[in-house]
């Protein structure tokens, strides 16, 4: 039996295919059709694996509703929990920041979800927030971490995506260096997410997943704000897809 997990997020769609010891991964932009993105993921996973019969599929992410080809749709919350427990079994707290939302999940000793919080209808501190602010700075979102200057962190007070953009433009106009502004941005995201973690209580072992975990500046700020190390999972963008694939495997 081959297990496939599809995580169709707001910005990126991720897929994992598990065939015994073999694992294949695909990531593509979701685009305007989450259903098509799901189909594309499955096609390219099949191609990589050299064909695949007897497949079980679990889909997650916001596209789970429109993608019809799966055996089961499960929320990102359960999938991230499952994925993280497989990678970092000791984890009791998960921070996941994706394209349009951020969440914190608490797990018990058995790796079961016991509580979670999610941001409300606001893109503050999410991948979208970083994208918009990077754009205002005229740099690529992937280069943010490498461009920060932590020695002179600028204070960014707005967490609203729209207001932060104008605040950055104001800072640039008053001559503050880009590196300082970026360090300030990372700090402000770290602060906001740390406050979310504290709502549920800070655990011992914190795992950081989702596309934003690729940004080392935010990892550092978050870890400083929480006063303990934050572990980024391998292939952090794929954690939800991995969880979905493992749940598909359970379907037998």
């Amino acid at each position: 039996m081959i297990a496939v997990g599809l995580d169709i997020g707001s910005l990126a769609a991720k897929g994992i295919l598990l065939d015994g010891e073999r694992q294949f991964r695909v990531i593509i932009p979701t685009g305007w059709s989450p259903r098509k993105a799901g189909e594309q993921l499955l096609d390219s996973l099949r191609e990589q694996a050299g064909g695949a019969e007897d497949i079980r599929i679990v889909v997650t992410g916001y596209g789970r509703v429109s993608y019809q080809g799966a055996d089961q749709a499960v929320t990102e919350i359960s999938c991230h929990a499952r994925g993280v427990v497989a990678l970092l079994p000791k984890t009791d707290t998960i921070v996941d920041i994706g394209g349009q939302d951020s969440k914190v999940i608490r797990l018990n000793d058995a790796g079961k979800v016991i509580d979670f919080v999610m941001n409300d209808k606001c893109a503050a501190g999410t991948g979208r927030f970083l994208e918009v602010t990077a754009n205002a700075l005229g740099i690529d979102v992937d280069d943010l971490a490498a461009s920060e200057d932590v020695s002179q962190e600028a204070a960014i007070s707005s967490m609203c995506t729209v207001f932060a953009e104008s605040e950055i433009i104001g800072l640039l106009a008053s001559g503050v260096a880009k590196g300082s502004i970026i360090a300030g941005l990372h700090r402000s995201v770290g602060k906001r997410v740390a406050a979310m973690v504290r709502r549920l209580g800070v655990g011992e072992y914190i795992a950081f997943t989702g596309g934003v975990a690729l940004n080392r500046g935010i990892c550092r700020a978050l870890s400083e704000e929480l006063g303990r190390p934050v572990q980024v999972t391998d292939f952090c963008q794929f954690t939800g897809a991995l969880g979905a694939a493992l749940l598909a495997k359970d379907l037998g």
């Binding site: 929320t75 919350i77 079961k112 999610m118 409300d120 209808k121």
Partner: peptide, 22 residues
């Protein structure tokens, strides 16, 4: 925490589904 509008339906749905999965 929400209002009467339909703008956050997907976000609410994830949370409600997740709590039911628990």
């Amino acid at each position: 925490e929400t209002d009467y509008s339909a703008s956050d339906m997907e976000n609410l749905k994830v949370r409600i589904e997740a709590i039911l999965e628990m």
